[in-house]
Nucleic acid binder design. Structure first.
Length: 442
RNA sequence: GCCGACAUAGCUUAGUUGGUGGAGCGGUGGACUGUUAAUCCACAGGUCGCAGGUUCGAGUCCUGCUGUCGGCGCCA
């Protein structure tokens, strides 16, 4: 039953003039009662197959003529190089229908529904996500996504980072408590994790360099093009590292991702209409660094109403990123704007040693990270000043009591990076089954 | 939590001042030997989201509900 021939390989010229057996799904059909054109799809591409009544016989011809889009079939034929627009065609001599589509329930995703999808996904397509996955646009997105995940893994592994897993059921919050998903846990309450970070810090003295790609969950009622309630979070933690050193890893992994995408997914980026020079700039350029105070000055200079100490929301990020054509870092936020685990700057404890990486083209924040508070005194001071209860974090505080060292890390929103590099209109377009505050199905 | 839209056939939609709901795609039947979203002819397919109200008469006006979408705040 193994599959030996792939449409993508035929387009590479590997089988010119040869007999092949293709397995796939009907993408489009057209023709007359003597000659029928069937565009076959598999995971590697599409190819036009020519079926002549004279070549296959009446029975096969009538069968294939009445087969609907997305029926699965096996066909045998000769690979023919043509000067028609497709370049390659299959002259079919044998056909077998494997999974027929019932005419009472034709494949529901029509051209009109797909055209509509170009400007964002309709309710209908979201309801039929399980079928939408096999369309060319979604397939392309999933291939790009795979390359991005692969690049992140190899980037860290090539630098001797250890992949490490944290629990998804947790007792305490990382960010503010209001965005936790509460789940019943044998008569107690547990929460879905918002981040791998606190548990990674516990392993930091063991592994020193560690990373993960794992789902994080946030019960934000956000309705924007860059939020999901379940998103894929690439996080790293490294011992003996300063904020600047951690930023180098962040810049490194993002640039590696852009570079690898150009190498592995040029065809897919072109299919999406992406400007390859733009991606090359993301791969090759140094990412500028700006302190929070400078950003506030720039915004105030533009007449934006912002007070020192306020976090920079998306509207302000957008104004800042408008002047950049590559991602850029913002560092040294006021400590009052950031959670307790951020380490105050020893040179000026009004600030914390942190960074955000903002993507251009309006995609906004893709990385948040920095140095962590690492002494017991400092973390207790930060927790208390924030008014956070100590109990759920006892294990986290305890790690500071046995050889605390300077360390830090960052979290990268993988789906956001996918959306940005693919040029997607919405983060939903780059994840197979998106979860937001109003949708958990299909 | 807040603000703003939308809901008509399987899909995408038109529907004027309130007066018997149309089309394209998809489906079915037929024609056609090189089509590119093939073309041509015919047919089937509708509780106009749900519940009230106004009216002689509501897809259209009013109220409520439900669902969805877009955006804000928060974040990755």
């Amino acid at each position: 039953m193994a599959k030996n021939y792939w449409i993508g390989d035929i387009h590479k010229g590997n089988f010119d003039g040869q007999e092949v057996e293709l397995k796939g799904w009907i993408y489009r059909t057209r023709g007359s009662n003597k000659i029928h054109f069937l565009v076959l799809r598999d995971s590697t591409g599409v190819i036009q197959c020519v079926i002549k009544r004279d070549s296959v016989g009446d029975e096969s011809f009538d069968l294939i003529k009445s087969s609907l889009i997305e029926s699965s079939i096996i066909l045998k034929g000769l690979v023919e190089v043509t000067d028609r627009e497709h370049g390659y065609e299959i002259q079919v001599n044998n056909i077998e229908i494997i999974g027929a589509v019932n005419p009472d329930r034709p494949f529901p995703i029509t051209e009109s529904a797909m055209l509509e999808a170009e400007g964002g996904e309709s309710e209908f397509l979201l309801d039929n996500r399980h079928l939408y996955l096999r369309t060319s646009r979604m397939t392309t997105m999933l291939k790009i996504r795979s390359t991005i995940f692969g690049t992140i893994h190899s980037y860290f592994r090539n630098q001797d980072f250890i992949e490490y897993q944290a629990p998804n059921f947790v007792a305490g919050a990382v960010e503010g408590g209001s965005t936790l998903f509460e789940v019943p846990y044998f008569g107690k309450k547990a929460y879905l994790t918002q981040s791998w970070q606190l548990y990674a810090e516990a392993a930091m003295p063991a592994l020193e360099r560690l990373y993960t790609i794992a789902p994080s969950f946030r019960a934000e009622k956000s309705r924007t093009r860059r939020h999901l309630t379940e998103f894929w979070h690439a996080e790293m933690e490294v011992a003996w590292a300063s904020n600047e050193e951690i930023m180098k890893y962040g810049e490194g992994v993002v640039r590696a991702t852009a570079k690898n995408l150009l190498e592995e997914r040029e065809v897919e980026l072109n299919d999406l209409g992406r400007d390859l020079e733009l991606i090359a700039r993301y791969a090759d350029s140094k990412y500028p660094i700006m302190r929070y105070d400078e950003a506030v000055e720039i915004l105030q200079g533009k007449g934006i109403d912002i007070d020192w100490g306020q976090d920079l929301d998306y509207s302000k990020e957008k104004i800042l990123t408008a002047d950049f054509d590559v991602p850029h870092f913002l560092t040294h936020y006021p400590r009052i704007a950031k959670p307790f685990y951020h380490r105050p700057d020893p040179e000026d404890p009004k600030y914390v040693l942190c960074h955000d990486l903002l993507a251009p083209e309006g995609y906004g924040e893709i990385i948040g990270g920095g140095e962590r508070t690492w002494s017991e005194e400092e973390i207790l001071e930060r927790i208390d000043e924030e008014g956070t209860p100590r109990e759920p974090y006892e294990f986290y505080i305890d790690t500071r009591r046995y050889g605390g060292v300077p360390h830090g890390g960052f979290g990268l929103g993988v789906d956001r990076v996918c959306a940005w590099l693919a040029g997607a209109d919405h983060i939903r377009e780059v994840i197979p089954f998106p979860r937001d505050s109003r949708r958990v199905t299909p």
